[in-house]
């Protein structure tokens, strides 16, 4: 038996918004630790890794590990029926269940909506993401600022070169209409920690990425005030959004473009 209750259905809704344009389906792996989703885009260039820790739920029970194979567009339809302040409870029988139940409860407890979502068998190829990678450059900034940079620059071109040097971090883009270069610098004096920009550099780093995927990653901005972007030569970029203090995270990995 699997049963988990989250006080804010909106968190789950935001998680889904953060992944559904990039991947169409995935296995939600449930264990005592929590709920984990790892999925790649169709081109196998980027990967999203979501973790919702058990302690982030009001109630969490998972007797046996199970994978809920879900078509994300369908889950999105169900979650769109949740009210802004609704709580959500997810239930499933053990492995082999054909459906999962989603129940939304209004904060006053006077409105309860229940859906049975059809599950599917998904052969998901799990990649082993090394956890001990050290990155030569890390940029922490407000997630709204990251979203704005990617949104602005993606109108100019479809590839972006991120360069971190002693002068700051620059985002260089070129396209048919011309070129753009946006440079940001550390600003650790901002009043609120969430408004600070912190650039840490072990060594100057310059890598090129497909803009399209970075645009997908900005869909997670509503989940977190800040985003951390970590890069190193010739390894995938990591873009990380933490959910709450301890609730979990959405991490995206993007393979770099390499000059031939």
């Amino acid at each position: 038996m699997f049963e988990a209750r989250m006080a804010q259905a909106s968190t789950l809704k935001k998680v889904l918004e953060a992944v559904k344009d990039m991947v169409s389906e995935g296995n939600f792996d449930c264990s005592e630790e929590g709920i984990c989703l790892q999925a790649m885009d169709v081109a196998h260039v980027s990967l999203v890794n979501v973790l919702l820790r058990a302690q982030g739920f009001e109630m969490f029970r998972c007797d046996r590990n199970l994978a809920l194979g879900i078509q994300l567009a369908n889950l999105s339809k169900v979650l769109n029926c949740a009210g802004k302040d609704d709580a959500v409870t997810v239930k499933a029988e053990d492995e082999g269940a054909d459906t999962a139940e989603f129940m939304f409860e209004s904060s006053k407890g006077d409105r309860i909506t229940t859906f049975e979502l059809t599950l599917m068998d998904i052969d998901s190829e799990h990649l082993g993401v090394p956890e001990d990678t050290t990155y030569t450059a890390v940029i922490k900034m407000p997630s709204t600022e990251f979203r704005r940079i990617i949104s602005d620059l993606s109108t100019i071109g479809d590839t972006v070169t991120i360069e971190v040097s002693k002068d700051g971090a620059s985002f260089q883009v070129s396209g048919d209409i011309g070129k753009g270069n946006l440079c940001i610098q550390s600003n650790t004096a901002a009043d609120k920690p969430s408004e600070r920009v912190e650039i840490t550099m072990e060594e100057p780093t310059k890598q090129t990425y497909a803009m399209r995927y970075l645009s997908f990653f900005t869909k997670a901005a509503p989940l977190s005030d800040t985003v951390t972007i970590s890069l190193s030569p010739d390894v995938p970029l990591v873009v990380e959004f933490n959910i709450g203090e301890e609730v979990g995270y959405v991490k995206y990995y993007l393979a770099p473009k390499i000059t031939e």
């Binding site: 790649m40 081109a43 196998h44 260039v45 980027s46 990967l47 190829e125 799990h126 990649l127 082993g128 993401v129 090394p130 590839t159 090129t208 497909a210 390894v235 995938p236 990995y253 393979a255 770099p256 473009k257 390499i258 000059t259 031939e260």
Partner: peptide, 14 residues
């Protein structure tokens, strides 16, 4: 020009 690499080049199957 630059070439898009695949994630499998960096991340192996566990």
């Amino acid at each position: 020009g630059s070439k898009q690499t695949l994630l499998s080049r960096f991340f192996g199957a566990p």
